[in-house]
Nucleic acid binder design. Sequence first.
DNA 1: CAGGGACTGCACCATGAGTGCGGTTTTCCT
DNA 2: AGGAAAACCGCACTCATGGTGCAGTCCCTG
Lengths: 216, 216
Amino acid sequence: MVQSLTRERPVQRVAKGEQTRDRIMDIAEASVLEKGFAATSIDEILFEACITKSGFFYHFRDKNDLALALIERFRERNLSIFEENFARADELVEDPLQAFLLGLKLLAEIMAEVQTERPGCLVSTFVFQDQQFDGRVRQMLVDVIQVWCAQFLARLERVAEVHPPRVDIPLADLADMLMTVIDGGIIVSKALQEPQIMARQILAYRTFVRTVFLGT
Amino acid sequence: MVQSLTRERPVQRVAKGEQTRDRIMDIAEASVLEKGFAATSIDEILFEACITKSGFFYHFRDKNDLALALIERFRERNLSIFEENFARADELVEDPLQAFLLGLKLLAEIMAEVQTERPGCLVSTFVFQDQQFDGRVRQMLVDVIQVWCAQFLARLERVAEVHPPRVDIPLADLADMLMTVIDGGIIVSKALQEPQIMARQILAYRTFVRTVFLGT
DNA sequence: CAGGGACTGCACCATGAGTGCGGTTTTCCT
DNA sequence: AGGAAAACCGCACTCATGGTGCAGTCCCTG
């Protein structure tokens, strides 16, 4: 990709405004993951971020706008985390199945870590409170999930070309299942406060995938 | 114990109060599933239930108390739904594996229906907002999940006695996976507004179970 | 040194949770 | 039939939170 050298905003100027905005979002995100969106008070964010109410509303039109910014950022970040993760696996192993299986192992480790330090997931949290938000936010949630599922499916299809599946199951369902297991794993391990469940569930899914393509 | 004749509410009297209480809880539950707990306002409940604020606080000490009552009721109800479901399967089929597989099929149907008319799940919703609640509520969430997982595990162990597993996976993880898939399925199908995903995911899990015990 | 970006300060409003308490109606028991 | 408890209603008030509006300030950059 051709990225022009100085493209967009001269490094320094960005810093100030963007910095504050990011700080607000960091604090908000942590609080949302802990207590949910509605229970996250703006006043509390103000206090932690050491700004005034006017400062907050300078950056965000209202709370819904904050939510939108949070998911947007989340989407960018996590998309690349997933991509990088599986891309790394692709580099290490040639066979698409083995690469996917390795990717799942790496994913299990990463997720276990993430769940330990900050349990929860923005998308899931928002899904359970989505009537508070406007259409843009809800559409974003849909997009995030669909893009992930599509990526997983693409991988599985590549695998199936090399290793014809031995179990009768639609690849689309198998792809969705990873998303399902991740989200479900988040709920269960957050509820029980055992981050390892998340990892074990991804590994269980991995076992399923291996069985589908390699047999018992 | 000596229970005096008239001790404990004479059948009829219960009705009135309990009825109102239930109505409040029904309305609250619907709203919680739609918008989340924090976004569910008491005033709105009052309006729909046609009672006054005093009436509400006569039945519930505060919002947390309402949450507690909601999960408690949810636990009783759903525990029996699951039990009845698998018990019905047990009646129809002898082999524990076949019974479990049938139970999963029935479960898929039931869940798809439930998700259609009222997507979401109280437990999941509360898990994502649990810092608002006191310890009793959180403990209840843990209990509900653990009891279910334990039940699933017990079934799988019975299956394993008859059909030695052909895939190397801890039964406990396989049991947890059902819970995980259900919760994850709820999130995904609620987000995408496609109740069928829930059903398909349970069936995918069913395929996995069959493969584990019967091979490809 | 002008001007815009990034705020602060303050005043003010509506909504929602929750309290307090006295009064009223309904229900049930004897 | 009558009395007591249960199941509310009415109202007044508090405090937290989301949100608006606007004038003024500090500071960086061109």
